[in-house]
């Protein structure tokens, strides 16, 4: 159980290499990781985007969709069960199907055996190597949910590239923004010991954490799908914008790291950007932008 009074949470970042299209194998792997994380004191285990299915699914989206509010959710029962037995929170990615047969790139949060949140990815990249809009429907918002007094918001990969997403999340009260992703490694630069895509991510995560004064937990996957390698590098960035824990760019591994939420108190007092944020001004400007666009 997370206890806000001591302001510390043990989080496990599970940087996995999901097996393409194999729900059963992936569930088994999730369970193994959750058990071992619990033994090491983790209270939350976070997996990457589409961790239960793999990423470049193409037509197999059709075969993997699960309506989490119907009997089909039974397939995830082993995960609910272990969450309840071990009194632990699990955040994992899956293909969601709704009652009207729309598919979503979704992430569930199950805590102590109960489903407490589902985030449907809002910004679905459909350019370059990506074709998510071909298969998935867009989600319609960014929730903030309460985990024993700690406010959490989940953004999935491309969601985080739109700075408005994290703006909404922190202004809705998020202390921790969890970003799960399946980001392909791409682009090299002389003199840089990481892929360009990784470099962009690290800059972005640091900006979100520092300017929105929140913890950012980034969990990216590794492994290859048809020659495309995912760039790992999962990490925790604190509200000072500093990387607290960082994982390998290539290997599957897990780390357990302790977040000290006192740092939020400290940073938000010293640099009260959120306190001073003028939501009315933003709203007024947004309305005028939308109005102007309508005229055009």
């Amino acid at each position: 159980m997370i206890n806000k009074s001591n302001s510390r949470i043990n989080v496990c970042l599970a940087q996995t290499d999901p097996k393409m299209g194999d729900l059963e194998k992936n569930i088994e792997n999730h369970i193994n990781i959750i058990s071992s994380a619990k033994n090491k004191g983790a209270e939350i285990v976070i997996f990457p985007e589409l961790s239960l299915t793999g990423y470049f699914l193409k037509d197999s989206v059709y075969d993997l969709g699960v309506d989490i509010n119907s009997d089909e959710a039974a397939v995830f029962q082993p995960l609910y069960k272990i969450s309840e037995e071990l009194n632990i929170t699990v955040i994992a990615g899956f293909v969601e199907k709704d009652a009207d047969f729309n598919f979503y790139n979704s992430t569930f949060c199950v805590s102590n055996g109960k489903l407490i949140n589902v985030h449907r990815k809002v910004y679905l990249p459909t350019y370059g190597m990506f074709e998510e809009l071909r298969y998935f429907k867009q989600g319609d918002g960014f929730d903030v949910f309460d985990l024993n007094g700690v406010k959490i918001s989940v953004l999935t990969c491309e969601d985080a590239w739109h700075l408005s997403s994290s703006y909404i999340a922190v202004n809705k009260g998020a202390h921790i923004i969890i970003i799960n992703s399946a980001s392909p490694a791409r682009g090299i630069t002389a003199g840089l010991n990481k892929f360009n895509s990784t470099n962009m991510w690290e800059e972005l995560l640091s900006v979100i954490a520092f300017y929105y004064k929140c913890y950012v937990i980034y969990v990216n996957r590794v492994g290859f799908e048809d020659g495309i390698g995912f760039s790992g590098g999962s990490c925790v960035i604190n509200p000072s914008g500093n990387i607290e824990s960082k994982m390998d760019y290539i290997e599957a591994e897990e780390i357990i790291t302790e977040l000290n939420l006192n740092l939020l108190n400290n940073e938000r007092f010293k640099t009260p950007l959120l306190r001073d944020e003028n939501l009315n001004l933003t709203l007024k400007e947004l309305e005028s932008i939308i109005d102007n666009n309508k005229v055009k």
Partner: peptide, 19 residues
């Protein structure tokens, strides 16, 4: 055209090996 140098080589090497 980016150069493969001593800084990015270890990552590219490992990446291609893993592929």
């Amino acid at each position: 055209l980016p150069k493969i140098d001593e800084l990015n080589f270890p990552l590219i090497y490992k990446h291609l090996g893993n592929f």
